[in-house]
């Protein structure tokens, strides 16, 4: 009995393997995606990307999306890029400058579409096989709104020196603050222990750059600032309403949709170099009145009317 079952089992396993392989190979296009960090901003961007790409290929071709969410450091970004190259995807999509630069560093021939880059023109990410979109947030507006709420002599800037776009945001804010005679304090978050810097410094307000590392520990950062009675502004949206006083951000969904549009063009034969990159400049301004009350800050009505959303 056992001897007669064995060949049958072998045949069954072979059939199952063939079926599984057939299902896997049914995906005719494969897109590899790398987020610079597993933060809600890139998550929202990716959600919009996937929805748009599925819409574009619905009923035409199956597209598989392989997502990598490495811990935000150079080795993990590089490993994620190498995995996707080894997987021989048809296209790589990256969110944020560090993930983009990690892919470019590998010098692969796989086309690359980036999104979520701060000022792509300044990010040195051009190439024949590369296109994408990014955003620009006017940093001066954050200082302007802070100054209408309280006296700002010193501004703390939370950034991460391992993230290229976060560094550029730090530099830009530092220059704008200097023009307005505002001192800046550097708070470089490279690991969780870096949060201790917040305990030692006492700026009048804090600006949080679009750093994936900083946003991994955003709740801890805001908790420390709240205890020290220091209000914060951010250029990533605070969807969880975790305690940022004001956010001035570019909605990530638009970038996800544009990245999908660019990806679709490339998968259908367009050359990335022929697709112009784009910088989104539209922003949303959110004031959190719950946090304002906690800090004893009164928002003047003239300021509130500038907001696109007010958290009450």
């Amino acid at each position: 009995m056992q001897t007669s079952i064995r060949p049958l089992l072998s045949i069954l396993l072979a059939v199952l393997f063939v079926l599984a392989a057939a299902t896997a190979s049914h995906a005719e296009k494969r897109i590899g995606v790398i987020m610079t960090g597993d933060v809600p901003y890139y998550g929202a961007m990716h959600g919009a990307f996937v929805a748009e790409i599925k819409k574009k290929f619905a009923g035409v071709e199956e597209v598989e999306v392989v997502l990598q969410k490495p811990f935000p450091n150079a080795i993990s970004w590089s490993n994620a890029a190498r995995k996707l190259i080894a997987f021989d995807v048809d296209l790589i999509v990256t969110y944020g400058a560090p993930a983009t630069q990690a892919v470019l560093h590998e010098k692969s021939r796989i086309p690359l579409v980036y999104a979520g880059l701060y000022e792509p023109d300044q990010a040195k990410v051009s190439g024949q096989n590369v296109t994408g979109c990014g955003f620009k947030v006017p940093m001066s507006s954050i200082i302007r709104y802070f100054k209408r709420l309280k006296l700002i002599a010193t501004l703390g800037i939370v950034f991460s020196s391992v993230e290229e776009d976060s560094v550029r945001q730090y530099e830009e804010m530092r220059e704008i603050a200097a023009l307005q005679n505002i001192k800046t304090e550097k708070i470089d978050i490279r690991s969780q222990t870096g949060l201790d810097q917040l305990l030692e410094k006492n700026p009048d307000a804090v600006f949080i750059t679009g750093s994936a590392l900083s946003h991994l520990w955003i709740d801890d950062i805001l908790s420390i600032l709240r205890k020290k009675h220091i209000p914060a502004a951010d250029i990533f949206p605070d969807e969880q309403e975790s305690g940022v006083l004001m956010t001035l951000f570019q909605p990530p969904q638009a970038q996800g949709q544009m990245a999908a549009d660019m990806a679709a063009q490339i998968l259908l034969g367009a050359k990335p170099g022929n697709i112009p990159s784009h910088t989104f400049r539209d922003t949303e301004l959110v004031f959190n009145l719950k946090e304002a009350r906690r800090f004893g800050i009164d928002f003047p009505i003239q300021l509130l009317i500038e907001a696109t959303k007010v958290v009450k």
């Binding site: 620009k136 947030v137 006017p138 001066s140 507006s141 302007r144 001035l248 570019q250 400049r281 539209d282 922003t283 949303e284 301004l285 500038e306 696109t308």
Partner: peptide, 9 residues
Amino acid sequence: FGVLDGRAD
């Protein structure tokens, strides 16, 4: 402020 903030071009 709308243009400064990027809400309009």
